[in-house]
Design a protein around this nucleic acid. Sequence first.
DNA 1: TACCATTCTGAATCGTGTAT
DNA 2: ATACACGATTCAGAATGGTA
Length: 326
Amino acid sequence: MTDNGLSRLPLEWTPIYPLQRNDVVLDVFKHSISYSDGLPPYAQARIIDLMVNRLLKTRRYPALWISVEAPGDWFRHEIKRLIKHKIPMTVQPTKKTCINEREFYQPIRPTYLQERDVPVLAPRFDPLDYGVKEAALRVLRVLARLKTAYRPELASLTGFSESHVRNLLKQLQAENLIERRQIGKYEGYAIRNKGLSMAHRSWNIPKGVHFSKYRGEFRYAGERHRRVSRRWRAWLEKAYPNIEIWECWTEAPLFDGIPDALAWGRKGEYEILFWLEVDSGHSSEKVMRCNYSHRFQNAYQHAKRLGLSIVFCVMGPPWVVRFFPS
DNA sequence: TACCATTCTGAATCGTGTAT
DNA sequence: ATACACGATTCAGAATGGTA
């Protein structure tokens, strides 16, 4: 079979035959993601956009089926909201194993398919091919976002215990995927290029695509600031044992703001987002009021529309926290 | 007051032990 | 094997205190 331009795109081809003829198809591709991939919805959506661009270059009327593994509803809705709908798409939970053309958000135009048009796609990522364990891969993926980090930060963001993370880090180091490095005052870990490229492959990012600007934390934050927000998940879990955290990302874009950290989980039946702002207390009250009321309004609007709760949380010097309820 | 040594504290690491 | 708990250790910076 000939290379028809898709050999670097790790998707599945799942055509629909609308006319019971094998030369007329709806040209559907399938992409699968999971909430536990270590990427916030925004970054996953950018990967999808990049894939769509590739599809548009080589196919006439492509369509994309995105299968999302995630508890609750928020993650899936975020993906749907954040992707650019340049071609017909549908975003479905993983339990949906086959798809109907009516479930796409735009109608799909049929394609006349010739023998040479049957796509040759890149293999989708399988951890076994790379000889990494699921748990180690999770640490690697989180580190790929952070670039450099301390162990407690990785433990917090992965949800693993510190000693478990320690073992996993040793394994990753033995495979030259990461290295120890001095970060500020203490020794921490940094991801190496080999590790970075494995993380990219694991997210099924097409080779040759520029993803780095979407991969990492969205803003630069100071040392102290960063440590607090990265360890927030662990803090939350300890302080509120009755809530379940599904995932946590630092500096991930959400609505119009960028929380310092965003944790997502549930308490009982209620799906909740925990929005963290770490405030140094360097700016004046007036500036703060302006900053926060805007973000808060925005977050509130979205929460209402999606029917989930947002807990807005500020950490800072006592006077900042006291001021905040007003 | 200026200087130096000591103690205290917080943050990060490592080693070991235990339960499943 | 994997997950987790706990104490010991190391390090840097802040606080304390003594002495010329």
